[in-house]
Design a protein around this nucleic acid. Structure first.
Length: 920
RNA sequence: GCCCGGAUGGUGGAAUGGUAGACACGAAGGACUUAAAAUCCUUUGGCUUCACGGCUGUGCGGGUUCAAGUCCCGCUUCGGGUACCA
């Protein structure tokens, strides 16, 4: 019997399905382990060989944990809402639900072939009303809560209303969009509409006029993490700034907790660093500068600075063009110039501003007073100051800030150095080091001391206060698109109200076209009867990250109609022990879901503050492209090593018609009609292709489909080879050449069980040597799995089989534990062989073998004998020989005497059991 | 600019400070075969030597150490992230 992977894999996949091998339930008898993959967006292109990398890794770990006696939750689902299906719908009229379903079916078919141990009974799809009901429900809770900054916790908005009724904003500790001040009487005097408007300022899910990233090509706004360098991450379309009334989530309120939480979780340092930067905490001071014409006319500028120590070096102030203070500060003489500048700034897109780093700005005409030195300084307006960060105004210290320096140089403003010995003739001195000068009471202090002293001074004199600022912005939550979750929101008198929870899910309505209405409303504006009790429903839909923010909770209890997750299920499964996915979600999904989870935690609905305990980012699988070289203006192709003799154009060729960089000429001729009559200049009868590592994509003709690999080599080979390629977290190119190695390994394993179709496994007692091979492997595999070093595990298996092959070992006592050891990696062949050995239950429920150190003991050690660190020969000595005796034996050796050449050694180092080094 | 990773044979990669290149691909040679496939055996970093062996070698330059791919300092270079964030 040959190793017939096709038959074996179909047989066991059917068996697992029939026996529900991968179904799990809460089981208080067993410890739980939750392994999660970032669920995929089912794209029309299907899976390529890069996608399953992380899934295979998590599958191995799940199976390993199960063999160790854990109750493992390992679910899968689909992030089914998204732009591509909707763009496709706009082009073809095909309903996105139809395309999405088709794509999901295709994904499932591909995933099934690889033999994953997912509990598919727990599958979720974000576009399924049973699922998005809980996305809508969570949104309602966010609307009904505010963030109490003192408790650092979400609280019911009703409790805030009670405080307003009792004492207005006096003593309120609430995260808000804008600092408001009113009394209880003023609150009570407000109309219902005014009160609602006021509450939006505090709600965690709120509606507000915001400067948003508007993408005209997609017809929607985008969140900050969906925009990179002025263009949309998806599609690369231009993005511009606009002010629009949009739903937002007050993620910024959780900035401090999101930051602190990072210390409690086991993520890579680089990912934590990325999140830290995105949150962008900076400690500093908020300071008041009065205008020279007096505060009477509303003239106070507040600035935020992390360098309070540089207060004596402030030579001008700068306002963001959008700042409300621009109006106050602009003098009649400067009005025209200021207006022109602001108009010009508005026209520039984000992208233009990034591309064009020219220094621009305009003088407002007014002056401010330095609150510490009393100096009078001009107030400028420039777009290098951002309205959205800090207070939208800065104190400029050109000597010690490179942006201020560039500005000062351009407009000829004074530059006062504040640190002894610094040279500011060519550039600013930004480093926070040195001794202060020109700084009054701060002179002589180090920068660090001066920062503290200045902060204290400012606070004591009432000039300002110590403050912490965050870069993290609230998440814009509205999308002007069709294919997303509808908001459970209706409008009364222009104000938003939440639907009663009993009316959930609010299902996505049908529309005639997936385009905006003539009035420019989102596509939902086309829906008939999109209203409730005569009140219009919200026309925006939720963004892509809405559905992925709490999906890991739903897997715990996917069919629950009463709650997102039951208390019992949540308290059993708690949070994700191992999360595997791509690093591209570092600032999007991984921030939002942490925020979402913390919010639910505050409400007492989930029992863990952090959703993902350990996270691993699998590396990207890059493509390996092949090239043919066409001689210019001909249809003749020249082989790689002869191409320099001609003038050629490299052309991408489908990697699937190339093997080991040798082109299949017949297939090439049929690949494209253009090449039907192509001629070739060969090397020794072969056409050698060039190659390069590029992104895996259709246009590079380097996409490899896992289905093809499974068809040709089987799923077990695919799984092993994906792991064998290299370290999990590293990016590496896919090269199908080399897959023969792991396939050969499986065939060789098979040959230990079957010879000429006869089962040859015996019950003979294993020898000490065979036991050593086995236990060495157990030890290595266990260590490697715990450390996610799967590439070296595959090598270890190969070494083991090679050794058993040499020993001609077909003993059950050795092979059975080995099969269990291999089961997480190659489950199909392991299941087959496990049953062949006489077992009647699934290998998934076997017990993972344990290494017994006593089998590993060596009786002799091969000591490398080195001279001045260079190894000259080896000496085999008994393992229990003492250090002194090893030294004596080594020195007495003929070869040592030869190496010493009459000289006496200065020093001899013996590392017991390792090495001998003789220093001459 | 800033922050994080990398750099080891023709290729993917291995190596708790202790024989660099495990394992695999490819290549070369051989066995079996009418032939091919499959399988099995041998060789395979470079230079040098008939051979034993010798020299050299982990991006570059220094250093620490009996001993450095590994630790420290200074560069080069390639990826990834991020950016007028005060």
């Amino acid at each position: 019997m040959e190793y017939n992977f096709k038959e074996i894999e179909q047989k066991w996949q059917a068996y697992w399905k029939e026996k529900e091998t991968y179904k799990v339930d809460t089981n208080p008898e067993k410890p739980k382990f939750y392994v999660l993959d970032m669920f995929p967006y089912p794209s029309g292109a299907g899976l390529h060989v890069g996608h399953p990398l992380g899934y295979i890794a998590s599958d191995i770990f799940s199976r390993y944990k199960r063999l160790q006696g854990f109750n493992v939750l390992h679910p899968m689902g689909y992030d089914a809402y998204g732009l591509p299906a909707e763009q496709y719908a706009i082009q073809t009229g095909q309903h996105p639900a139809v395309t999405t379903k088709k794509n999901i079916d295709r994904y499932r078919e591909q995933l099934d072939k690889i033999g994953f141990c997912y509990d598919w009974s727990r599958e979720i799809r974000t576009c399924d009303p049973d699922y998005y009901q809980w996305t809508q429900w969570a949104f309602i809770q966010m609307f009904n809560h505010y963030f109490n900054t003192q408790l650092q916790k979400a609280q019911p908005i009703t409790s805030l209303v009670k405080m307003f009724e009792a004492s207005g904003t006096e003593g309120i500790q609430a995260a808000c969009t804008e600092e408001l001040t009113f009394t209880a009487e003023e609150w009570k005097a407000k109309t219902e509409k005014e009160q609602q408007e006021t509450l939006l300022n505090y709600r965690i899910a709120y509606l507000a006029d915001m400067k948003v990233n508007w993408c005209p090509a997609l017809g929607t706004v985008l969140a900050n993490d969906e925009v990179s360098e002025g263009v949309s991450v998806r599609g690369g379309h231009l993005v511009e700034q606009r002010v629009m009334r949009q739903w937002s989530l007050r993620v910024s309120a959780y900035a401090q907790r999101l930051l602190e939480g990072l210390d409690k979780i086991d993520w890579t340092e680089s990912l934590k660093e990325t999140q830290k930067n995105w949150i962008g905490r900076s400690e500093g001071a908020e300071m008041k500068f009065s205008l020279s014409f007096g505060e009477g006319r509303g003239g106070v500028i507040e600035v935020f600075t992390t360098r309070a120590d540089t207060i004596y070096g402030v030579t001008f102030m700068v306002l963001a063009p959008e700042s409300e203070l621009v109006k106050v500060c602009t003098t009649p003489e400067q009005a025209v110039e200021v207006e022109n500048y602001i108009a010009a700034t508005k026209k520039r897109t984000e992208r233009e501003r990034i591309a064009d780093r020219r220094v621009t700005g305009v003088f407002s005409g007014s002056y401010a007073i330095n609150p510490v030195s009393g100096a009078e300084i001009p107030i400028w307006i420039s777009d290098y100051v951002l309205a959205g960060y800090g207070t939208g105004a800065i104190m400029a210290v050109p000597a010690h800030d490179s942006r201020d320096y560039a500005f000062a140089r351009h407009f000829n403003l004074p530059i006062i150095p504040l640190i002894e010995g610094c040279d500011v003739s060519e550039e600013s001195f930004d480093a926070k080091e040195g001794i202060m000068m020109n700084s009054g009471f701060l002179d002589g202090l180090t920068v660090k001391e001066a920062i503290e002293a200045a902060k204290k001074y400012i606070a004591d004199k009432g000039i300002g206060r110590v403050k912490v600022n965050y870069r993290l912005r609230d998440a814009i939550f509205s999308r002007q698109r069709y294919w997303g979750e509808p908001f459970p929101v209706y409008y009364k008198d222009g104000m938003p109200y939440m639907l009663d929870e009993s009316r959930l899910p609010l299902e996505l309505p049908e529309v005639d076209k997936f385009l905006p209405t003539e009035k420019g409303e989102p596509p939902l504006g086309r829906a008939k009867n999109w209203e409730i009790n005569g009140y219009p429903l919200e026309l925006n839909t939720m963004p892509g990250f809405a559905g992925s923010s709490a999906y890991y909770l739903r897997y715990m209890d996917p069919k629950n109609h009463k709650a997102l997750v039951s208390k019992e299920a949540n308290e059993y499964w708690r949070n994700v022990d191992l999360y595997i996915g791509g690093t591209e979600h570092a600032t999007g999904h991984l921030i939002y879901s942490r925020f979402w989870n913390k919010f639910l935690f505050d409400l007492g609905l989930v029992c863990e503050d952090e959703p993902f305990k350990k996270l691993i980012n699998q590396g990207m699988i890059q493509g390996r492209s092949n090239f043919v070289y066409r001689i210019k203006d001909t249809n003749t192709f020249v082989s790689l090593n002869l191409k320099n003799q001609y003038e050629t154009t490299p052309i991408h060729v489908d990697v699937n018609i190339v093997s080991n960089d040798i082109l299949d000429i017949e297939k090439f001729k049929n690949w494209n009609p253009e090449y039907k009559t192509a001629e070739f200049i060969l090397e020794e009868g072969k056409y050698h292709c060039g190659w390069a590592v590029e992104k895996m994509s259709k246009s590079m003709y380097n996409v490899v489909n896992p289905d093809d690999i499974v068809e040709k080599y089987g799923a077990d080979t695919l799984r092993l080879y994906e792991m064998f390629l290299g370290p999990l977290e590293q990016s590496k190119p896919w090269d199908t050449n080399g897959i023969d190695g792991v396939h050969r390994f499986l065939k060789r394993l098979w040959s230990l069980f079957y010879k000429d179709g006869i089962f040859v496994v015996t019950n003979d007692e294993p020898t000490a040597e065979e036991l050593k091979v086995l236990h060495k492997t157990i030890k290595k595999i266990t260590f490697d799995i715990e450390n996610f070093s799967y590439n070296t595990s595959v090598s270890a298996f190969m070494i083991c089989i090679n050794e058993l092959f040499t020993l001609k070992c077909s003993k059950k006592a050795i092979l059975e534990p080995l099969v269990i050891l291999l089961a997480p990696f190659a489950p199909h062949v392991a299941e087959e062989l496990y049953h062949a050995l006489g077992n009647e239950t699934t290998v998934c429920d076997a017990v993972f073998p344990v290494c017994h150190e006593e089998y590993l003991k060596e009786s002799a050690v091969k000591y490398p004998i080195s001279f001045n660190g260079k190894v000259r020969f080896t000496l085999e000595l008994p393992a229990d020989m003492s250090k002194e005796d090893v030294e004596k034996t080594a020195l007495a050796n003929d070869q040592t005497i030869k190496q010493l050449d009459g000289k006496s050694p200065k020093k001899v180092i013996v590392v017991h059991g390792k090495i001998v080094n003789i220093v001459i």
